[in-house]
Design a protein around this nucleic acid. Structure first.
Length: 579
RNA sequence: CGGGGUGUGGCGCAGUCGGUAGCGCGCGGCGUUUGGGACGCUGAGGUCGGAGGUUCGAGUCCUCUCACCCCGACCA
């Protein structure tokens, strides 16, 4: 590609309010342009990157027996009504009516459609297992789009679906996807970890997330330094303290003026946080009041609380709602409250004689014991693991890392096949729902995440596997210097003829402009020719990010570049590499 | 949806007390320059996000509204 002909130009400055590095760099490098909030066009350079990511995905999906197909973006609402999600899913699903006044939706995922296909195409166990996938547009009207391609409303996702006879088959497909995803993200040059995660709206029995490390990540993961545990914070557990062995003492009310927080209370009474009980109040989507109780040194994890309470969503309760059940903000405890669903963390069961609120401003209760002084509707693990929490496997203090979720794998089971009647006949002639799995990768997000991990102060440093071009070729000097321009053109043709992808900066700009753009765009190899290099019959070769150049005789440029490309590709083959 | 912020030429910004819009980059032309974002001359380009209001007069003040960005509850 000749840069003089390229559509889209680089920007010296990004819009001032752009925060994320991948957003800035992709904007500046002429890869993406915004159309609306969370809606982007991909310019030719960015589209090449995304297509390469998608090609890697295709190769790895095909390698595990995936068959590519294409399902529609616009769905009749009826198919979503059949699984109940038409009403379950909130405003993040775009809905509209067609000219016949029929309800339609924009696809935010494709479980319904693939299951509909399965029920019409599959009748017999002989037709199982199958894996199908597609790369298709999804629209999710996110409450808040942010960060360029990291979190958008319209995006392309590779989603695949496994169809199996039974749980064993699902396990095999799930493992195959796990391995394929490992290879995909390694080939893209990402540093990532696989963690356990919440199953969320998909509903299923098991889920893993592929998390790429990034300080700008929206997720927090807990990692045991000894390597035997890693989970998303939303589900992470930790080794609990042993139960306190102490006989229950009589409960007594004490005056504790101006102690609305656990810290102020512990300081006032000079007791450890772990000897207090903390109350956290939520209103569930079902309308119930959810009263969470946890030891004062721990924090409530909302995802876990949602699971434990069976609510689809939780919002913090207002002061009026808290008083309505007989509690007092800042001095709350479950003692004497009404019309609330009380969820207590395991730490409460294991800790007798805690200090808890008296539901009266300025007062607390000493020696409060769950079960004796108040009823608990359910005990559960609702505690949030934090940096330093002991690993649930080995007890080593865990570390936290921020990460971006680039892929996930789900065991769906029979939820969709049962709802839509996608069944098969087994060898005995009996009907069974197909056992399904669902697996997703955001291709644009993956590309942007690579930028988050691979950049320097000059610009992007693409791994060669997904760089827009393998080589940036520039001639330096004056356009009047016909020898230099001719040498550039000749190299461009030779490299291209050898099957090498070249972005040729044939513009009449000065050297500084060309160097800066080459570094911004971030192709892994830079080749330049000028009257100086030509005087020795050479071209200058410089891998992106290196501070040293090598000079290569003109007739050796093609083989030299070919071998360098091969070297750069080696660690990105998809096989595990030692760090 | 709650909180915060910003809307002025393609991009980045300035615009004081309300007085009829400016700077840098970029873009066109001419000339000089040519290995780390050149320089001179010259030119094009703006209903100041939109609507309403106050005023002799509004980019500036008021009301409403829209868009975008950032922080929180959701997800590839």
């Amino acid at each position: 590609m000749r840069m003089s002909q390229m559509f889209g130009r680089t920007l010296r400055e990004a819009p001032g309010d752009v925060e994320l590095i991948s957003h800035r760099l992709m904007l500046r490098a002429a890869m993406i342009r915004p159309l609306g909030a969370g809606i982007f066009s991909l310019l030719p350079l960015g589209w090449r990157v995304v297509r390469k990511v998608e090609q890697i995905i295709r190769e790895e999906m095909d390698a595990i027996g995936g068959q590519e197909l294409l399902m529609p973006v616009v769905h009749p609402a009826d198919i979503w009504r059949e699984t109940g999600r038409y009403d379950q899913v909130g405003p993040e699903m775009a809905r509209f009516k067609d000219r016949g006044d029929r309800d339609m939706v924009l696809a935010m995922t494709h479980e319904e459609v693939v299951t509909d296909l399965a029920r019409s195409e599959i009748d017999s166990y002989r037709q199982l297992p199958r894996i199908v996938y597609h790369l298709q547009t999804k629209f999710r009207d996110e409450p808040r789009a942010r960060g360029g391609l990291i979190r958008v409303r319209e995006f392309t996702m590779k989603d695949s679906y496994s169809l199996d006879r039974d749980e064993d088959g699902l396990e095999t497909a799930y493992r195959a996807h796990w391995r394929a995803y490992d290879r995909i993200f390694r080939r893209c040059g990402l540093r990532f970890i696989v963690v356990g995660a919440d199953v969320g709206m998909m509903g299923g029995s098991e889920s893993r997330e592929f998390m790429a490390f990034s300080p700008n990540g929206e997720d927090t993961i807990l990692i045991c330094p000894s390597g035997d545990y890693a989970d998303n914070r939303e589900v992470a557990t930790f080794r609990r303290d042993s139960p306190v062995d102490e006989a229950p003492l009589p409960m007594e009310e004490i005056e504790t003026p101006s102690t609305p927080t656990i810290e102020s209370l512990a300081r006032f009474l000079d007791v450890p946080l772990a000897r207090t009980a903390k109350a956290v109040f939520f209103k569930g989507d079902s309308g119930r009041f959810i009263f969470a109780v946890i030891r004062g040194d721990l924090d409530v994890n909302e995802t876990k609380l949602r699971q434990a309470s069976g609510e689809l969503g939780l919002t913090p309760a207002t002061a009026e709602e808290i008083r309505a059940i007989g509690a007092e903000p800042g001095y709350g405890s479950p003692v004497g409250v009404r019309d609330a669903f009380v969820v207590a963390d395991e730490s409460i069961r294991d800790s007798p004689n805690l200090v808890a609120g008296a539901n009266r401003s300025g007062y607390h209760l000493r020696n409060v014991n769950a079960g004796r002084d108040y009823e608990v509707d359910t005990f559960a693990d609702i505690a949030s693991a934090e940096s330093g929490s002991p690993c649930p496997v080995c007890g080593t203090p865990m570390e936290t890392e921020r990460a971006i979720e680039v892929g996930n794998i789900f065991k769906l089971g029979m939820r969709y096949s049962a709802a839509l009647g996608a069944t098969y006949l087994d060898a005995e002639g009996e009907n069974h729902p197909i056992v399904m799995g669902s697996y997703g990768i955001g291709s644009g997000r993956t590309a942007a995440t690579v930028v988050e991990q691979c950049h320097d102060e000059k610009g992007i440093r693409w791994p060669i596997t997904i760089a827009p071009y393998e080589v940036s070729l520039l001639w330096l000097g004056s356009a009047d210097d016909v020898d230099t321009v001719a040498a550039g053109d000749k190299l461009y043709h030779e490299l291209t003829a050898a099957g090498i992808e070249v972005l040729y900066d044939d513009r009449t700009d000065r050297a500084g402009v060309k160097f800066n753009d080459a570094e911004l765009i971030g192709n892994p190899i830079r080749l330049s020719v000028s009257s100086r290099t030509l005087a020795n019959g050479q071209a200058e070769l410089r891998p992106r990010g290196d501070s040293e150049s090598t000079f290569v005789p003109l007739d050796e440029v093609v083989p030299t570049v070919q071998s360098l490309i091969a070297d750069l590709r080696k660690p990105l083959s998809g096989e595990p590499v030692d760090d």
